[in-house]
Structures are given as structure tokens and as C-alpha cells.
Nucleic acid binder design. Structure first.
Lengths: 262, 262
DNA sequence: CGGCAACTTGACGTTGATCAAGCCATGTGG
DNA sequence: CCACATGGCTTGATCAACGTCAAGTTGCCG
């Protein structure tokens, strides 16, 4: 397997530095959702895990499935999507390293969407039953999970606004901003010039556009100095503040500064 | 105040029949989200409430606000919306009688959206602190709230699919189906011929279209026998199975049969 | 270095937006 | 109980953003 520059960047080099084993990055993410005691953190680290590598487009969950394990994204990206009757596909959520991918199945009978890897990914699977017990015993963990669910909901609402009311250029720029800031929450803030991990077709499925039109908008953003890709396939973010201007981006909806609320 | 036929229909005639006071309809809704003991139900009924009537378009919460009370919709409809930089408005959620409107503020510092009455509405306000204490003490209630949050998320994802990948006709028909089935969850199943409580402008803001185009799609659905409005302003649902066909509606995403999961 | 998936580009088509003028149902005030 | 004001609905003409189709081109991975 080759390691491109971007993939090296996503790799979680400090995953095991905190003595919390493979779930370290997940624990760090949850710590941003709510205050957890050392015992809380330790009890998460002690969950049973099975870690597995996946190729791009590997299917993790299907609409109608009843899951028994919760996948947690350690490295790489994943996405939720739904399919319309005519075959049209809509990506309805994008998940970044550290995210749990299916808290929902603790509580709901069957999944309402499909879940896939976007890139090559490393995923830890934790039995949902253990999560359920843990969150019954440890209110702080239950709360952090609830906060995480609420933030995912907030992002979905922003996507509704983005896809419903902004034109193609703003829409694309807005999504790229979101990606940039969401990665920066747990990983190092992404260096400028970091590669967007989506194909033009995936961007189209996410933004409710066609690949051809995405292509044109990428060129446009490049001409404006916001993106930067010298011959390379994947666009690279060149000027984040330019992207913010273009899309009128505000990160309030990401609730990244929520610690201590309630 | 005049009482139109439709408003009579929405009125919750059995609100006080169960001996649970004004929150009766809310308790019934939560019972569909998770099993609650009689004590659980009683403790909800004993929450402090202030009940108030509102006119259409009354603002209940603003983006950036930090709420201290949770509004609960007893009669009428409400909606969440966000506004783009150019003034374009996107309705990102619709709430029906029985719904709690802001569990989110238990956990998040500030609201990421605005919240308004759609119709005339009766709303009970409960201090968020009491909800927080209640859900710490009673896991079944915490669980029902979590399930409710998850279902709202599922609906948002379906809206992303609807607004992103279906054409205007299917989109409108799909939303009308959703409205029909969501009302039917707690109230009596709406009679065929029940009035849609949204203006054409509101439908446009919800579906990412313009009022003019909504008007044309309403006429189209009327010609197809799915809607029915003899001179009346608001469209009435004439043939729900026709609407289902047109929009390829499936109610799986509403998770209305979730009891006993987990 | 060969094959292919992903990207690129241009010509043209279509859905839904915009603009503008008029209509009419509702409920308010006399 | 009627008249009037008004917000919301209706309709047609025109326009633009984005979709579709099709024929290349090129970076990427094996």
C-alpha cells in the first residue's frame, strides 16, 4: 500500500500516546463533547474492540440492518448515504477520524441509511451492548454521546441550508470549510494545501449537484485562488479565508466550543 | 378567534383525559419513543409548566440564544429555520403537536437555528433544569429523549435526500406524505381532506423551491387527483396512496414502530 | 507500461427562478 | 352584516443555473 502525503497526514500518530489504546482518538473526541473523569476515560479504553482495515467504498451498514456493534473511525473517512427511487444518491453525513459511526443503533431497531468508508480506513468495532451498559452506568458518557448526536443533527440542518439555498460555488466552498474545521478539531489543524479526500462524483452526491458541475466549480474556485492543485487529481485547500468569504462560512453550527455547557 | 374546520381537527380534545394535565399529549408522544413506567409518566406530569397561546410566526428561539426553558407543542405547528447570507430562508424541521421543541438546549451552549410557530399554537414551557434532573434520575426518560433526538436526525437526513435528489413534484408529494403520517402518530390519523397548514411560501422555504413553482406543483398534484381544494386557499390531501406513489414514500425513516428496540 | 477510473471540455437541453401584473379569499372594522 | 384592505395565490413571459450527453484526456495503480 502506498502512502500519499495526505494519507500520512490523516494517520493518527499519537493514537497510543495517551495510554488509552486504540480508542485514544475517540476518547479525545468525546472529551470535546463533555467532561469525562479519568475513570470514565479508562472505562472506555477497556471496552472490547476489534480493529480492522477497510478499502475505500467498503460497506459498513445497510439500510434496514440491525447492528450489534458500533464502528468507530480511527483513521480515514466514512459517509452515510441514502438512495432515491431513480437511483440518485445523496450523501447525508461525512465522518472524520475519531467519530463514532453508529450510536444510533443502541436505540433504534433498524438503520435508515447506508454507511460506507470514503477512503481506506481503520475502524474499531465495539459491541453496542457494552456501550449501552457504559452509558447507563456513567452519566457523563451518556451526556457526551447525546451531545455528539445533537451536533450531528446541527450539521445536517446546516447541510439543508447549504444544499437548499446556496448556489453551486458557495455550496462547494462551504463544504470545504466545514471539512477543514472538523478535521482540525481532533487532528492537528490541517496544513493549508491538504487534499480533499472526495472524488468529484462524491462531492456531487454530497452537494446535490452533478460531477460535471462540480468540476466546473472546482476550476472556478481554483481561478479565485481558494483551491490549488498543480496537475494533481484531488483539489487542495489553498486559502481557507478566501473559502470562508465565498461561502459566508460561520462555524457556530459545529459547536466546537461547547465544553461546560448545560 | 374563529375556529376553522382544520383547527378543530388539530385541537387536542383528549388532552386531559388521561389525568396527566396539560403535558398529556407530550407524554403520549414520549411513550412512542420508549417504555415509561407509570412513575416516569407521573413525574413528567408534575414538571412545572407555563402554558401560553401564540399567534402564527411568533418567534420562540433565536440563533445564538441560550434557552432556559423547553417549549412543548400542545396544539398547532412550529418550525426550525436558518437564514443564508443573501436572506434566503430554509426551514430545517417541522414540529407537530406533542413534540418537544428544544431538548437540545439542555446540552448545547447556544442555538444554531431559529424556532417559530407555524400556526396559532399552544405551548407549554418547562424549565430545562427540571428536564435535566429528571433525565439524570430516570434512565427511561433519558432514553426516550435520546430516541426522539435520533428520529429528528433521521428526518433531517430524509429531507437532505428529498431536497437534493427529487424533482419538485416528488419533493412536494413526499413532504405531504411525511406530514400526514407524523400527525397520525399521536392524533387520530388525519381524515383525508385535511388541510395542509403551510402557505405556499412556507412550502417553498421548506423544500428549497420558490413560491411560484410550489403553486405550479400544487396545481399539478391537484390535476393528478392527489390533492383537492375546491376554491379553498390551503390544499387538502385527497389521496394519500396517490401521493405515496408519486413520491415513492416509505415511512421507515420515521421509526414509528421502534418500541422495544435496544 | 498498460488499463482504467476519474477528470475535462464543449454543445445543448431543461427545470425551476425571476419578474410582473392581476386576482380573490379571509377576516377586520364600521 | 357588508365593504374594504391585504396577504397570499395565480398566471404568463422570459431567463439562468445547472443537467445531460458525448467525446476526449490524464493521472494513478498494479
Amino acid at each position: 500500500m502506498t502512502m500519499t502525503a495526505e494519507r500520512k497526514y490523516w494517520t493518527d500518530h499519537h493514537a497510543s500516546h495517551l495510554g488509552f489504546g486504540p480508542l485514544s482518538i475517540f476518547i479525545r473526541k468525546l472529551l470535546r463533547r463533555g467532561l469525562l473523569s479519568t475513570n470514565d476515560q479508562q472505562s472506555i479504553a477497556e471496552l472490547s474492540v476489534r480493529v480492522q482495515r477497510f478499502d475505500p467504498e467498503a460497506q459498513l451498514l445497510r439500510e434496514g440492518d440491525h447492528a450489534l456493534v458500533c464502528p468507530i473511525l480511527l483513521e480515514g473517512f466514512a459517509y452515510r448515504y441514502k438512495v432515491a427511487a431513480d437511483g440518485g444518491r445523496q450523501i447525508v453525513a461525512l465522518k472524520v477520524p475519531g467519530d463514532a459511526l453508529d450510536f444510533q443503533s443502541i436505540h433504534l431497531r433498524q438503520s435508515d441509511h447506508d454507511l460506507r468508508c470514503l477512503t481506506r480506513a481503520t475502524i474499531a468495532f465495539v459491541p453496542l451492548k457494552e456501550f449501552e451498559i457504559l452509558s447507563d452506568q456513567r452519566p457523563a458518557i451518556a451526556r457526551a454521546i447525546q451531545v455528539d448526536t445533537l451536533i450531528e443533527g446541527s450539521i445536517a440542518r446546516e447541510w439543508l441550508l447549504n444544499n437548499g439555498r446556496r448556489n453551486a460555488e458557495e455550496r462547494l466552498a462551504h463544504f470545504l470549510c466545514e471539512l477543514y474545521y472538523r478535521i482540525g478539531e481532533i487532528e492537528e489543524p490541517p496544513p493549508l494545501g491538504f487534499e480533499v479526500p472526495l472524488t468529484q462524483e462524491q462531492l456531487a452526491d454530497l452537494l446535490g449537484l452533478t460531477p460535471v458541475h462540480i468540476n466546473r466549480m472546482l476550476k472556478l474556485l481554483e481561478r479565485r485562488g481558494a483551491l490549488d492543485r498543480n496537475g494533481a487529481r484531488r483539489p487542495r485547500i489553498g486559502d481557507i479565508s478566501r473559502l470562508r468569504e465565498i461561502s459566508h462560512f460561520s462555524e457556530v453550527y459545529l459547536h466546537q466550543d461547547n465544553l461546560g455547557a448545560g
